[in-house]
Each structure stands twice: as structure tokens, then as C-alpha cells.
Amino acid sequence: MDTLRVMIVDDEDDFRETIVKRLNARKILAEGAASGVKALEVLETKDFDVIVLDVKMPDMDGIETLRHIKKLKPEIEVIMLTGHASVEFGLKGMQLGAFDYVMKPAPLNELLDTIGQAYNKKRGLIH
């Protein structure tokens, strides 16, 4: 129950899989989804605390996925993952309810920090 559950949504397979591995090595329950559509499918059956969401994806992009997530499971905190060119998307995401945005490539520590903060916020809400 208290284990942090994180979903990583990013279309860069190698990147996504490596982060999932690293998070798992740090005793975080991490899972990956290759696209916004896949992520929403998973969400129907599973719950997560924090979702790390890439902004620029083919088919459904990060912003739209964010909208759906917030409609489906609004209690989940979302962190936007942006490249420099898509800073505006990150800001937009925050307007739509994302917790924060992190710029790629981000050192894992930074990402972990932000995930931690998001988790705390979520727990603060619930507890």
C-alpha cells in the first residue's frame, strides 16, 4: 500500500524501459506504457500514485492524455516530461492540472525528487 507506484508514459522505448528498471531497482513499483492510449488502457485496471508523462508523442499527445487521466483518475499526480522545444506544453500541462514539469534529459535524482514531491502531495490529500 505504501509502496510508490509510478507509470512512465513515453514513446522512446529504450529510455522508458531503462527508467522503469532503475526505479524498480530502487524499490519503486514502476511500469511503462508506450503511448497515451496504452496508458489509459492500463489505468482502467490498475492504480498508480504518480504518472510521468512525455509531452511529445505520436497519436495522442501528452496534453490530451493528461486530460483523459485527470477525467478518469484525478487523484493521480502527473509530471510532464518535456524537451526544451516543448516548454510551453509543460506550462500548459500545469494549467490543466499537472504537478510539475521536468526537462529531458533529466538526471534520475531530479526526477526522483519531483516524483517524491508529487507523491507527498497525493498522500497529503488522501491522509
Partner: peptide, 12 residues
């Protein structure tokens, strides 16, 4: 950025 991010993660 994308390959850089992947390289960084792999190195990590």
C-alpha cells in the same frame, strides 16, 4: 535530446 536522454539513463 531523445537519444541523449536514453544514453543518460543507460549510463545511470
Amino acid at each position: 535530446n531523445n537519444p541523449l536522454a536514453s544514453i543518460a539513463e543507460r549510463a545511470g
